[in-house]
Structures are given as C-alpha cells and as structure tokens.
C-alpha cells in the first residue's frame, strides 16, 4: 500500500466539484477508501477542514465531514498525527527557514518526519 501525507486542500478539493483540482483529489480519496493508499494527516488538517466548511458552507456539513473522517480513521484508512512540543519546534524551524504558513509548515514537518511525499492541491 502506498502512503502519503496529505494536507487540507486534498480533502476540501474532494468536496468542491467546481475546483480545478477536484478530480485529482477524488482519485486520491478513492484510492485511500479502497485501501490502496494510506493517508497521513496532521490533526490540524481536520480542524482546518471543519473550520472552512462551517464558515463557508454550514455547520452540519462540517460535522458530516468530521464524521466521515472518523469513519476512515476507525477503519485504519486515514491516520491522524497529533502535534506535540517536538513537532512544534521542527515546524517552527521549517516555517522560519521557508517563510511558510503554519498549516503548510506542520504538513511539511510530518512528511519529513515520516519520510513520505506530501500531496497538496494548492500551488506553493
């Protein structure tokens, strides 16, 4: 099974059909659901997804998204990595060296730590 770190843009693009990256994101999500690909995500990704959805679409949709992610987590298809002080120190260095947003620094930190590719749908 392939393993990749994904950021919020992958999950969000998988919900927005009008986005140009939607089909690419859906292909990854389908692979994950079929257990051909294991998603690693920082816990911030879940928070960010829920926050964007609740702000732009609605609270119910945000809760629904969280419920589906929990479902994937329960079945071992998606692994959530929690943040701690060590990860924070590493992410701070990444943010300072590359002048990145916090969410990007955290995703890169996890990818580097796990030695896995980072998949994103945003151009950075």
């Amino acid at each position: 099974m392939r393993e990749e770190v994904v950021d919020t843009s992958v999950l969000l693009a998988g919900l927005v059909t009008s986005d140009e990256t939607h089909f690419r994101a859906m292909a990854l999500i389908e692979d994950m659901d079929k257990e051909e690909l294991l998603f690693h995500v920082p816990s911030l990704v879940v928070l960010e997804l829920v926050s964007v959805l609740s702000r732009i679409v609605g609270v119910e949709e945000a809760r629904e998204a969280k419920g589906i992610i929990d479902f994937w987590v329960d079945r071992g298809k998606l692994k959530i990595h929690h943040f701690d002080l060590r990860k924070m120190d590493d992410a701070i260095e990444i943010a300072l060296n590359r002048r990145l947003h916090v969410a990007d620094a955290i995703a890169i930190q996890l990818a580097e730590e796990l030695g896995l590719p980072l998949v994103t749908m945003t151009r950075k």
Partner: peptide
C-alpha cells in the same frame, strides 16, 4: 456519504 456530502457542499460553495 462523501459523495452525498460533496453534492451538498458543491451546491452551497460560492
């Protein structure tokens, strides 16, 4: 569930 949520999110997405 995801497909159904996707339809709904896309409908409401600006």
């Amino acid at each position: 569930l995801w497909g159904s949520l996707r339809d709904w999110v896309s409908k409401k997405w600006p």
